[in-house]
Design a binder for these strands. Sequence first.
DNA 1: ATGCGAGTTTGCATCGAATGCAAGTTGGCT
DNA 2: AGCCAACTTGCATTCGATGCAAACTCGCAT
Lengths: 214, 214
Amino acid sequence: MAGPGQHSTSQPSLRERKQARTRQALIEAAVELFERQGYDETTVAEIAAAAEIGTRTFFGYFAGKEDILFPDSDARSRATIAAIADRDPAEGPVDVLLRALDTIAESDADMVSPMAAVRMRLFHTVPAVRGKALQVQLAAQREIARELHKAFPGELDQVTAAALAGALTGAVSGALDVLLGEQGAEHADPAQLQAQVRQATERALRPWRQAAGE
Amino acid sequence: MAGPGQHSTSQPSLRERKQARTRQALIEAAVELFERQGYDETTVAEIAAAAEIGTRTFFGYFAGKEDILFPDSDARSRATIAAIADRDPAEGPVDVLLRALDTIAESDADMVSPMAAVRMRLFHTVPAVRGKALQVQLAAQREIARELHKAFPGELDQVTAAALAGALTGAVSGALDVLLGEQGAEHADPAQLQAQVRQATERALRPWRQAAGE
DNA sequence: ATGCGAGTTTGCATCGAATGCAAGTTGGCT
DNA sequence: AGCCAACTTGCATTCGATGCAAACTCGCAT
């Protein structure tokens, strides 16, 4: 093997601390460079050099150039799954998902990170980044579908659970696509943004509230 | 410019016929090679050679290696837009979308093409192909959202239209992902496959059907 | 029919992402 | 101290993708 692998749940060793620092340095260097020169104009070699590691080593930390824009890519699905986990017995599937959506919007520090802005701009301009982002979304959607089916075995079979998960992520990303795609998205008020997403999603999923069980 | 560009609506000239043949030859050669050797093991040079054109010329016909798996990528959005166009005045947004999705599921001859099978297998194994497929889907979704908003200006603002388009396409693709993603999808005969697609779509859209008209 | 010109094809050179390989180097642990 | 495994790094290589300039082909007006 070539690259570092994540480790135990115990105290971080010197090695792990160093790797974490290197990883962070890579991310910051990349964001900085992407912002200044653009994505295609920045080479992996430059990023590695800026983080003071060998070019070859970069690929030990990230599988590809795009991947550096999606560290902790499964944060969203983890949050959703957590929301599903501690659900109220009275809640229906759609209620749980909408609550998860609220939870994410509140606790998601990623919406305001400097990287998020860069990522969003590159999403609209660089096909490779768009492709990667959509793959991350699909992975999350699949994970959600699986947990959803596990949490509501009687109510949702696998296909229906997948449909619901797809409907949720599709609705949210669709709304965000419009809200953030328009110019001036960077100066938007997060709270108002969330309200709009919430409202649009709720309307799109409304039929599921009653019809969830077949 | 380097590559050929599509032409008028009139009679296809000799030039255009040749290009169409070359394009088709490229597609068939690529599918054949992908099938036999796998995607990563097939180089663009091989595809071009099999179609008897220079390697450089390939990129005049397709922007990248993945793109050859998605010719006529906007067929779906065109069909949807057509369905939206000739809607009944009494139909609501959901009704129109449901009808559009039905039309697509039925008239989509692409589901049984030899390429479709290869494409589906590669979707699950090759990240680049998966990314491209998702981008095509997103493009269609956006187009649908735009037309939907245009068709129901008073009823649907842009955000809601996008959320609705995302929810429906997400639900269908989510259901298909589960139903066709499991093993054995490749060995099913076309008729059975088509039936499965129909069933998945049906179940994914059921909640909206029951609540249609609102 | 002839020949001009736009549209195409192609080879060549180049760049950059990505990977295998084979040393080196470093940190963890006894 | 010293071994072992994990990690780093450079080197060579493959392949996708693009710019460039020279050939070539077809459509069309004369």
